[in-house]
Design a protein around this nucleic acid. Sequence first.
DNA 1: CAATCGTGGTT
DNA 2: TAACCAAGATT
Length: 348
Amino acid sequence: MHLPAPIDAPAVLAWYDRHARDLPWRVAPADRARGIRPDPYRVWLSEVMLQQTTVAAVKNYFLRFTSLWPDVFDLAAAPLDSVLKEWAGLGYYARARNLHACAQAVVREHGGVFPQTSAGLQTLPGVGAYTSAAIAAICFDERVAVLDGNLDRVLARYYALPVPVREAKEELRAALQASVPSRAGDFAQAMMDLGATICAPRMAACMLCPIQPGCLATKEGDPTRYPLKPAKAERPVRKGHAYVMLDADGDVYLQSRPEKGLLGGMSEVPGSDWASVLPDVAYPTEADWRHRGQVVHVFTHFRLELEVWSATVIPDGLDGGWWAERRALKGEALPTLFRKVLAEAGLD
DNA sequence: CAATCGTGGTT
DNA sequence: TAACCAAGATT
């Protein structure tokens, strides 16, 4: 499959010069034209946070991280534990571990200076095809195709792509590559802004679109028909128990999850396995256990239903965890799931 | 390479 | 309100 007609980059850049979003990690096009260059550390940090995550959700985390750790040396020197705590709630926690490992690699192996090519950047932990291209284009104007979810949608519509994106990824990349102008960084950000604000998933404001003249989906009449979706797998249900233990002072017993896998390295309250059939109740210790309710939490690939139990216990026979003061819970590396569990047990 | 890996905003 | 989906990486 060969895709015709490259994107009209001058039209896209002219649109971007007027309508670029103002974001904390971004250098505005006017400033960029004046020679101001983005800080690769801030661009990298924002790009990692933005992986599969909305701009709205990222903003405050970005400001917090850059306030705590203004440069890559600060972040590399921070304890992993504190990075996980600050990442709590943002999801996809492998990103936080890779973020920390990447900062240390940049400091140890590159003297604190990020590599300046997409190929060099892609050797870093947590930096894949998209993120390496985005940093190289935005910071160094490397003429590389920056292909994210927004671009998948914009290009699928522009070319009225007759197959799901996954089956034509390389054709899209080639078509985009052939369109990249010398202002590669502004072009990449412009195309993403276009996807986020004009060519949105369920609404296409084609009258405002700078590349509407070449858009094949618009010619067909219904751009939101694209991209074509592959059949979706249904989401299985898993069930389990969560045991919230309090001591006489009202402190809460927490423990760390295994470093790999779901919610890896984050904190939790003890609980059962999660299975398609609710496991038998097995309290961690003898006490007057009470059922406090149920928490439902939806992950990407399954739905979880946890029965929440709580009790005041005599703190013995427990191993490997720690007692957290209730007013210190806010600072623990607790994923949203276990914050819901604690709330269900009456601990806010 | 298909499965795994979170969460909150939006419709 | 349930479904959709977001500036993807890793194995």
